[in-house]
Design a protein around this nucleic acid. Sequence first.
DNA 1: GCTGAAATCGCCTAACG
DNA 2: CGTTAGGCGATTTCAGC
Lengths: 166, 166
Amino acid sequence: MPGAKLDPIDRQILAELQADGRMTNVELARRVGISAPPCLRRVRTLEEAGFIRGYHAEIDPRELGFEVQVFAMVGLNSQAEADLSAFEQKCREWPLVRECHMLNGEIDFILKCVAPDLSTFQSFLTGQLTAAPNVASVKTSLVIRDGKNEPSVPFEVLEDRLNRTA
Amino acid sequence: MPGAKLDPIDRQILAELQADGRMTNVELARRVGISAPPCLRRVRTLEEAGFIRGYHAEIDPRELGFEVQVFAMVGLNSQAEADLSAFEQKCREWPLVRECHMLNGEIDFILKCVAPDLSTFQSFLTGQLTAAPNVASVKTSLVIRDGKNEPSVPFEVLEDRLNRTA
DNA sequence: GCTGAAATCGCCTAACG
DNA sequence: CGTTAGGCGATTTCAGC
C-alpha cells in the first residue's frame, strides 16, 4: 500500500505545502512540531520520492485574458496503444489543452482546454482537434463557472481512513 | 481587456512562478532581468491584484494512496440559481470532489473526484452524490491514465497573441 | 514613480551530537 | 531529531534616474 511509509508528520508536511507552497521551512517546521533541519530533510526526501511533483503559483486564467474554459469529450477510431499514445502526444503539443485524461467507457479522452475567447477555441476545435488523425468524435461543453477548484489530494480522507484502520 | 496592465516582466514573473512556485526571489529577479527589490514588489502586487491566487505543492495522488480518479457528469432537476448554488455548496463539502464546474448544454456539472479505491468511490456515488437533493442523473468515467496535466495558463499563447496585435 | 544599492534581519542548510 | 553556526536570501531604507 502506497503511503504506508509516511508517518503523520510527513503527511502534515504534504498537507501544509499543498495549501501554501511558499511557506518558509521554519514556519513549516513550527507547524508540524519539529525543528527546521529535520523538517527540511523530510521535504527533500518527499520531493525525491516523487510525493511532491513540483511547486506552482496558481494563476487566475480570466485575469490574464483567458476568458474561455472548455471540456472536450473525444472518441477515437482506433484504441490501439500506439494510436492512444499518438493522441496524447498531440495533446501535449497543443497549448490550449491543459489536461488530457484517458477514460473508460464510450468516451476515450476528456480534455480541459482554455482559450482567450470563443473564436480562438473554435478555430482550434475545427482546425486542430477535430482534424487530428484518428479522432472520431468531439463533444464540447463550455464552463459557465467554477463551483470548486482544489489541488489534488484531500488529506482529511487519508487521515480518516488511517484512523479507522488503527 | 484583462491582462492589459501587465508589462512583459510581469508576465514573465507569472510564468516563472507557475513553473516553479518555490523559486527564490533573487533567482526570479535574475531570470526576469531586474534586481530583487522591485521584483519582490511586483510579486506582491500581482498577489494582491488577484493574478496569483496562491502557491501549492503538486502532490501525486497515487503515491499517497488515491488510486482512483473519476469524472462525474451530473444533471439536475432544477436549474434555478438557488438550486445550482446549493449543489455547488454540497460539492465544496464533499472531500472526494476536487473540482466542480458548471457547464452549458445537457450536462449541468462536471466533477473531478479522487478516492483511495473503487469501493470508497462507489459508496460516495450511491450514498452521497446520487442521493443528493435535486440530482437527476450521474454518469461516471474512470480515469485510466493522465496524458497531460498542466497548471492553468499557457503563457506561450498569451505572448503569441500580444505579438500579433503589436 | 519606479529602479537599484546598501544594510539589516531572518532563514536556509550544513556539521555534529 | 535537536543544536549550533556560517552563508545567503528576504526585505526595508534610502538615494538616483
